[in-house]
Amino acid sequence: MNRIFGKLAYSLFTIFLALTAIFFIIRLTPGDPVSRILGPEASQKEVLLYRKDLGLDQPISIQYLSYMKNLFLGDLGVSLFKKKNVGNLILSHIGPTLTLSTIAMLISAVLGVFLGIWSGHRKSSWVDNLSRVVSLFFLSFPIFSLAPLLVLIFSIQLGVLPVSEWLGVEHTILPILTLVFPLTSVLVRVTRNKFLEEVNVPWVTVLRAKGMGEFAILLRLTKVCLPSIFNVIAIQLSVILAGTMITETIFDIPGMGMLLLSSIENRDYPIVQGVIIYSTVIYMAVYFLVDFFNEKVDPRIRVN
């Protein structure tokens, strides 16, 4: 129990450091947000007034304290451009992003582990070779070049799936496919390599010698591979989050990605900051859960 609290405290500390880093990256990088927002024609007086309005005339230590206090109270500030509360804006956009990334992650996890074990089990067979070639192919096409290609094939050439928008189930298929292909490829490779590492260890030989069925052995091997797979999923999560955001901008899905991109274009810093804080916190929460879960699955991790 103590250790869990220790880990939780460590995670919270990293989140705190991350938030501090975000604050300083935005404040200390060259380029004044105010002059960007108001444009080059703004008078000196307007700029000063606006700075005061945003609290940018205060010393940086005071700004930092109020930033942390507001974050702690869950207040992410007000959008400069849309004049709405950033927290509410994000909540109204988070649905599609979470839906897409969760579904894509679940499908890829099941598919990736299954294919990885299969191709590891039948090493150098046609299944193995095919899955290695296909996964290499999909890993080498970034999401934003894969998505237009999928649109070309499925929507324009075959005409079976709608191109964009976010209306019904058929609109989710292409975005999910776009996310599933690269993620599954990563997982297939990791699972296969981990499987091949574990397949010749003594305990497997013992089980086989005692006459355990091949399927039961495979199940146990899969269980041993799970922690590495979860770790990879956790590491890939930032890729998935970013990937989902990019996918949204391609398929016109009103999620966090659209929000982030439109606010980057408008130089709407509170939203950019808010989206990144949200993603970081989600990311770290999952990271923490994975750590916790891995110990439950594989007792060896607990001992080390």
């Binding site: 990293t14 991350a18 990088t29 970013a242 950019v272 970081t280």
Partner: peptide, 24 residues
């Protein structure tokens, strides 16, 4: 160690987006 952990836990593409959006 602290610096490496900090940069590792950040979603790296988001850190890049943040820096690029802030610096122009």
């Amino acid at each position: 160690d602290l610096l490496i952990n900090l940069i590792f836990v950040f979603p790296s593409i988001l850190i890049a987006i943040l820096i690029m959006a802030a610096t122009g």
